[in-house]
Amino acid sequence: MAQEMELKYGCNPNQKPAKVFMENGELPFKVLNGRPGYINLLDALNSWQLVRELKEATGLPAAASFKHVSPAGAAVAVPLSPELEKAYFVEGVELSPVATAYIRARGADRMSSYGDFVALSDECDAQTASFLKREVSDGIIAPSYSEEALEILKSKRKGTYLVLQMDADYQPEPVERKQVFGVTFEQGRNEVKLTSECLAERPTRNKEIPAGAERDLLIALITLKYTQSNSVCYAKDGQAIGIGAGQQSRVHCTRLAGNKADVWYLRQAPQVQNLPFREDVRRPERDNAIDVYVGEEWQDLLETDAWKNIFTEKPPVFTREEKAAWLKTLKGVSLGSDAFFPFGDNVERAHKSGVDYIAQAGGSIRDDNVIETCDKYGIAMAMTHIRLFHH
């Protein structure tokens, strides 16, 4: 491993020269293939921390899909339901644990994951590499690669796919620094550990949070620890299903993440799972078509012949009433917030997307209103007293 590495350019092509370096010691990663860019490494190092902590918190292999220094998806290796197998295009495939985590992370928000950076907590096996090869992605970071997996990844993107190997034993200095406009900032690293202990205080009438929901709340909170703030994360069955990042208003985070969670669930509706796609339609086009189908633009598309490029026959309209009825069956969702909810309107929006469990910092002057709104819907809420801002 080297002490420094030159990069193509910084965040933008006009930002030259660019490099990464260590003040002490060597860089904690090796480049096995490709040439890293500035944003690639920001995504790689943030996503690695995320999957490492998910593995530590749950004991399960973890994966993340990053775009522009925030996760599009994050997950651990929980087996897929038949509906998710179909939604994630892996019907009838027996998946390895690390492949399961990756498929879940990628499936959380497939549109946002287009051109992502992937992180794995465990060795990348051939199956995971094979799934990754067929997706549009910029790079991957993992602690190790099987020989076959590495060969598969090296053949991706005409041999330019970025493959990084992380030193799993690396521990950074306790103080971190960065410069903005020539001014150096310094702070202690955010080393807070997110465990079930932070979910102990439950001021709502309903205090029951089952083990699966506790796991999902921790997944949401750990995901938020590496998401640009303000941020909110919905999670279910071992994965993020909707992440709202970088919004100035917390309720906008909640709405954005809730809308993504709704689309995730609508993809499992029978009307979507039975869409008659043409065999020559690629996955990205399928994803785009599904997003249009579950949205409000579908009726406009049906009035043209554009559907013939995607489907073997004209699908029926997925009506607003049908979508609303399907979304009402979404239950057991967990929601994490990187800071306190200032108003009960966040809970109102969360309830519409099946949220039954919440973890948030607490400490608002309107905590009583937030608790009252949770009680209105029977939601169990934990106050963590931990803020997770990330910038």
Results as ranks from 00 to 15, higher is better:
K19Y: 05
G159M: 01
Q273S: 12
A220Y: 01
A64H: 12
L388Y: 06
V20C: 02
F185T: 03
E83A: 12
I386L: 15
P276A: 04
Q3F: 05
L302P: 01
E348W: 10
A101V: 05
Q187C: 13
R205A: 13
S65D: 15
L266K: 13
F277G: 02
A149N: 01
F341E: 12
P36Q: 03
L221A: 02
I222C: 06
L199E: 01
G336K: 12
V281L: 09
G332D: 00
K376C: 03
A108F: 10
Y377N: 05
L327F: 02
P13V: 11
V355K: 09
G73C: 11
N14F: 15
E135I: 01
H390I: 05
Q268H: 07
R110I: 03
I103S: 07
L266N: 12
L217W: 03
A129I: 01
K323R: 15
W326I: 10
V163E: 12
E279A: 15
V281C: 08
N230M: 08
E197L: 01
A211D: 04
S337I: 11
L50K: 02
Y102W: 15
I222V: 08
I386R: 13
N288C: 01
Q239S: 14
E321T: 02
G246H: 11
R104D: 10
F311G: 00
S47C: 15
K133L: 01
V93K: 12
E123V: 07
M383Q: 15
S334Y: 08
H390Y: 15
R283I: 10
D262M: 13
G73R: 15
I241N: 06
T304S: 04
F318E: 00
A18Q: 14
D109G: 08
A119E: 03
V175Q: 07
V232W: 05
I140C: 08
E4M: 09
V317T: 03
G212L: 09
V272P: 02
S196K: 14
V98C: 10
